[in-house]
Amino acid sequence: MKDNKNTPIWLKASAAYVSSLMSALFIFIALCAVDGLMKSGPSLFCSVWDPERGNFGILPMIWASGLLSLSSLITGWTFSVGCCCFIHGFGPRWAARFLANILRIMTAVPTVVYGFASVFLLVPLIRNGLGGSGFSWLTASIVLSLLIMPTMVLSMDSAFKTIEAQTSITSAALGFTREQNIAMVVLPASKQWIWSSALLGFGRAAGDTLIPTMLAGNAVQYANTPLDAMRTLTAHIGLVLSSDVGGTAYLSLFVAGGILLFVSISANILFRLMRKKIWMQG
C-alpha cells in the first residue's frame, strides 16, 4: 500500500507540482521583498507616502494593518466565544439552530458582497450617527470581525462538541445544568482550542483586502480614533498596482507583500504547533 514503486506517476507529479508551486511563490515573494528592502531600505520605514517625490513610507500601512486586524480579532473572537456558548445551551434550541445555520451560510457569502452592502448600508449609518465620512477604521473593523467569525466559531464548535459529549453525563450526575457544564467544565477544558482559533481568525483578518479597501477610506495616516480613515498593507498593494504607478513604487509593494506572507505563515505555523500540542496532550 505504501510501496513507492507502485505509486502512479501522475500522483507523484501532482505532489511535486504543488510543492514546487508553493516554493516558487515563497521564493519569488521573499526575493522581491529582500530586493526591495536592499534597494530602498530605511526610506520604506517612514511615514510619508508620496511616490512623485520619491517617498515610499509604508509605516502607516503596517500600523493600520496591525490595528485593524487586532481590533477585528478582539471583537470577532469575543463574539465567537459568545456564539459558541449560545449554540451549546445558552440560547433556546431553535435560536441556537438558527444561529448555527446562519454561520454556515455566512461562509458562502463572497467578501465583495459584504463590502458592497456595507458601503451602502453601514457607511451612511456611521456617517450620520457618529460623524466623519463613514469610511473608517470602525466600519471596516465591524465588517471584518463579522467576516472572520464563521471560521473561528466552526473551529471552536468542534472542540465544544467533543468535550461536551465527554463530560455532559458526569456533570449531569453532579447536578450541573447544561449552562453550568459549559461555563465551568467545557470552556476551561477547550481553552487551547479557543486560543488557537484566534490565530486562524487573525490570519484571515490580516490577509483580507476587500473590506479595508472598500470601507476603511484608504487615507495614508495614523488613525487615532475609530472614525479616522486608514490604509492597510493589503489595500495598499491593490490600490497601487491597479492604478499603475510603476517603477520604484513597486519595491515598497514587494516589501508589503513579504510582510503579509511572513505574518500569515507565522500565524499558521503557530496554529499548527498549538494544535499538535493539544493532540499530544489529548
Binding site: S19, M22, G203, G207, I237, G238, L241, N268
Partner: peptide, 25 residues
C-alpha cells in the same frame, strides 16, 4: 508531514499575495 504543511501554508497565504505573485511573474 512536509507536504501537508506546504498545502496548509498555501491555504494561509492571503489572496492579495497570490495576486502579487502573478504580477511578479
Amino acid at each position: 508531514e512536509m507536504l501537508s504543511m506546504a498545502v496548509d501554508l498555501l491555504a494561509s497565504v492571503p489572496s492579495i499575495v497570490m495576486g502579487l505573485f502573478g504580477f511578479v511573474l
